[in-house]
Nucleic acid binder design. Structure first.
Lengths: 144, 144
DNA sequence: AGTTTTTTCTTATATTATAAAGCAAAATGA
DNA sequence: TCATTTTGCTTTATAATATAAGAAAAAACT
């Protein structure tokens, strides 16, 4: 991981579909050299994959919520959440809270249904997302 | 948005770098037809972009935390968080909590520093992430 | 039924990814 | 210190892919 790899990673995060040719001119290398570096980043597991960001509102997932659970049966809740199609992310955490679930659902009714279904596993504290910001490019740590 | 678009979106979420040719065989269309559909999904804003998933631990971001704030000066906190390089996501929410920040940092020391720096904006409740699951393919809603 | 619009296919071309060979610098080891 | 190995790069050549253009089919509308 040198500065060139760092630049490559940042560019790929910014846009996964950048061509190896364009990437090559940015980092002042030939495209086969860049392809080789990218392949190594993949093999090392630093790059986990390439994905597409979808606008949730435009596919009718108009409501997002972050639901917090305290002192619960984590195993059962985890199974329930991972099987539910509206769940985006689950976090097992240590702190005041023990489990955090992020969901994207269709309506207040489907949210209500989710909360009801989750109830048996613990007491949910539901927080509706009003707005969100994201840092889509994470700068890797580099030794100079 | 028909069933073909739904399939395309799911495949692209699974792997943004799938070739249009391969996608075409999956949905039983020619590649120009698929390219056209993808372009439309982009123009409609349903596809927001393509990104690369990076393994945070492998770039030394060994600690992740979800930090909750109650009744705070959202504007200032938001500015602080969005300027901080360790912050991944911020949520303005309505519920028991009013602001949620997800960070990926290097060590307990850098986490401590973040908490100290965030203190002026409200009382943070820090939850260290122990494990995480993700549903990386969100199924769009389709009329049959 | 006829017209217009949209979607798709085929073909042809341009772009891009990738494999191969060769070279130079750096690292390793006797 | 010198030989050997490894690593990373470049150039060249080839294969694969994306994409533009035009024609045909399907769908929607009057």
């Amino acid at each position: 991981m040198d500065q060139i790899d760092t630049e490559i990673l940042q560019q790929l995060q910014r846009s996964a579909k950048i061509s190896m040719k364009e990437l090559a001119t940015i980092v002042h290398l030939s495209s086969p050299a860049v392809i080789e570096r990218v392949k190594k980043l993949e093999e090392q597991g630093i790059i986990e994959g390439y994905t597409t960001k979808v606008n949730l509102k435009k596919i009718n997932r108009s409501i997002q919520a972050i639901i917090l659970f305290k002192s619960i049966d984590c195993k059962s809740l985890s199974n329930f959440c991972n099987a539910h199609p509206d769940v985006l992310e689950c976090y097992r955490v240590a702190g005041e809270i023990s489990y955090i679930v992020k969901i994207a659902t269709y309506s207040v009714e489907t949210l209500e249904q989710f909360i009801d279904d989750a109830m048996p596993y613990g007491t949910p504290s539901t927080n509706i997302v009003l707005s969100r910001t994201e840092n889509s490019v994470i700068k890797p740590f580099t030794l100079e």
